[in-house]
Structure formats: structure tokens, C-alpha cells
Amino acid sequence: MIVFEDVYFSYGTRSVLKGLTFKVKESERVAILGGSGEGKTTILKLIVGLLKPDSGRILIDGEDITLKEEDELMDIRKKFSIVFQDGALFDSLNVKENVAFCLREYTKMSEEEIEQKVRELLRIVGIEEAIYYMPDELSGGMHRRVAIARSLAVTKPKMFLYDEATTGLDPINAENICQLINELSKDGTGHIIVTHKLVDALRVAERFIFLKDGRIVFDGNIVELKESQYPDLVIFKKELQYVI
């Protein structure tokens, strides 16, 4: 359970979130929508404690993470598997080492076991053949997949967080990633996907949160989404009208 209680956040003097309050259950499949620069990425970073709010509380399973020190946050972070906007692969390491990063850090697996596990994870995301590529040799879609594989490497997370998992991808790759996201959440694990593409949000989410000027202006399911007449949301929905 993720709870935001009246969270304010600013980067220096630029205030980004102005009083955010919402609850997300572990099994929910949520999309956070909003224009560029509305603070979507910031919300994900707040959830895993990479940033601290100026005021307000953030509770993860009842624990207030705003009071925790960096080393105490570890147990909280283990509950999530987060994929950053641009994949955030370590660009000095090849795909295998990227995926193996946490395995090497936290387990005492032998070289063969690691190789096996990495191949298994890459098979899940469908790019086993890229195992010895360097990050800069990957296409955008492959990049995201490797990032997802890497985030799966350690333990079974309670919830997946995806930042713009499909942005900038061609429709086929976007579709594949959406399928992958649904696949990973099949057993009831929830996810929060941050995006500004309503099309993709509809594929993977059942609850939609719309962010505008640092506040939540819409929070509801697909039916409510269809009915909403909030101006900016209407613009987002327009995208869907153009059917051939």
C-alpha cells in the first residue's frame, strides 16, 4: 500500500507537487498521466525514497519513509522494481553485466549460475541474443527490455514501477512492452506506469490518475475517464479519436 498524504515537493524554488494525496494498493494497476514536466517521474522517485518531500507524509505499508535514512530505505526499495525513464543502464557494462549487477552484488552465485539466470531473464523480455551487446548498441525498445530484465533480477517485487516504458517506441515495440508489463503483473502483482500516452495507459491500467499543475485533477477508472470533461484530459482523449 502506497499512501501520499498532502505531499509537497519542489526542486529548489520550482515547486512541482502541490499537495498530492492518493492511495494505491499493491495489486492495483495504475497509470499516472500528465503532460511533460508535470512531476510524474518525481512521484516515482518519491515512492522509492530517492527524493524527500518538502512536507507531507509518504507511507509504504504503513511506514513513513520520509523519516528514514538512506540505509534504512533499503528494505522499502526491495519491495519495488523500478524501471527509469531512459532505462538507466550502466553504460560501462554490457547487457549481461547490467542484468547481473544485483546478482553479483547480493548473491554468491557462481559464474555459470549467473550466466544461466541472466539468459533466463533476457528470455522473459525476449532479447536473449543481445546478451553481449553494450548499452549504446541497443535500440530504444531493447534498452527498456534490458532495464526491465535487470529490475527483475533480485527478488520478487511486490509492485512494478515503470517510467515512460513505451514512450518513443514504435507501435510494435510499444505493444510488446505493454504485453510484457501485463504478463509480469498476471499473478496479481500491481504496477504503476507513468506515461503521457493514453493509448498505452489503457492497455495496462485500470485506474487513471491525471496530474496537472502539481495536483491530481482526475482519479478514476475507465468509465469515469470516458465521462470526464476536464479540459486537459479531453485533449489527451482526443488522441484516441483518430481511428482509421
Partner: peptide, 21 residues
């Protein structure tokens, strides 16, 4: 420049999320 590009590419954030100082 190496560490700077790691910051910009969210690689430092990744490290922290993976529990690496």
C-alpha cells in the same frame, strides 16, 4: 564527466535503488 553522465542518465539513482551506496 563520467560521474556526471551517470547522474544525468539516472544511473546513480539506479545504484541507490539497488541498495548500492
Amino acid at each position: 564527466s563520467e560521474l556526471g553522465s551517470m547522474v544525468i542518465g539516472h544511473q546513480i539513482d539506479s545504484l541507490r535503488v539497488f541498495g548500492v551506496d
